[in-house]
Amino acid sequence: MTEHERSSEDEVSVRIERLTKVFERRKIAVDHLDLEVRRGEFFGFLGPNGAGKSTTIKILCGLLRPSRGRATVLGYDVVKEPLEVKARIGLLPEEVNTYERLTGEELLIFTGQMYGLSRAEATTRAGELLDFMEIARGDRHKMIVDYSMGMKKKTVLAAALIHGPRLLFLDEPFNGIDAVTSRAIRNMLTRAVQEGVTIFFSSHVLEVVERLCTRIAIIDRGRLLAVGDLAALREQTGHGPDATLEEVFVGLVGRDGDRGELSFL
C-alpha cells in the first residue's frame, strides 16, 4: 500500500470489500460483504446465530483467510500484511480459549511480550489491568483452569487490552461478567473511543449495543442487511423514532420471533 493510500485510510479503521468466506462443503459463512468502519467509532456488528459475525471478525484479525474479496484494517491488508494488522488490534473472541495452565498474571505478561512490550512494562500493565478487572491478588497466581467463567473472560479481555490497541474486536465481551465490572468496562471503552480507539463490537444483548454504539451493521446469512446509526436503521426499516434496536433488528432479519405456541406448553 502506498503512503497516499495509507493516509487516505487514516479515517477508516476497517474497510471490507466483497468479502466472502466459503468453508468446506460449500458452506457460505460470509457472502459479498461490504462495510466501512471509521476511526473512533463504537461500531456494533449484529446478526442472528450463524450469521457470519465471528467468521468476519476472525478474517479481520488475520485468523481466517477470505475465499474472495478484500479487507483492510487500519490501512493494512489482512491477507498480505497480517502481522501489521495483528500488532495494532486487540481481540476478545466469543469463546474463551486461552492458556489455562498459565496463571492470570503470567498470561498477561506473556501476551504483553508477544506485542513487543518489555517484561517490566508488561508486568506493570498486567498489575494495573488485573486491578481494573477486580481479579483478587490471591487469584492472580492461580492457574486459569481454576478460574470461573467470568474471571476467564475478564483475564482474556485484559490480555486484549495490554498493548493499547488502536482497534478492538470484542465478541460478546460482557458474557459471564458481573454487573459492576461490566459497567466499569463499558465506561473504560467509552473513554477509549473518545480518545480515538475504534471498537468493533458484536453482541446479542441489543440494549447494550443500542446504548453504546454510534453505528450498527446487521448481517444475516453472511450478507449485509443494513448499516448506519439507529435513526438511519429505523428509517430503512420503516420504523418510527421510538422503535428500539430490537424491533429494528427483528424487522430486518425478517423473523419476528413470534412462532406460535407449543402444543404442550
Binding site: C61, G62, V85, N97, T98, Y99, E100, Y115, A159
Partner: peptide
C-alpha cells in the same frame, strides 16, 4: 498450544 493457538497467532510475532 491446544485452543490457545488462536490467541498466539492473533499476535504480531513472526
Amino acid at each position: 498450544e491446544g485452543r490457545g493457538i488462536a490467541q498466539l497467532l492473533a499476535t504480531p510475532v513472526s
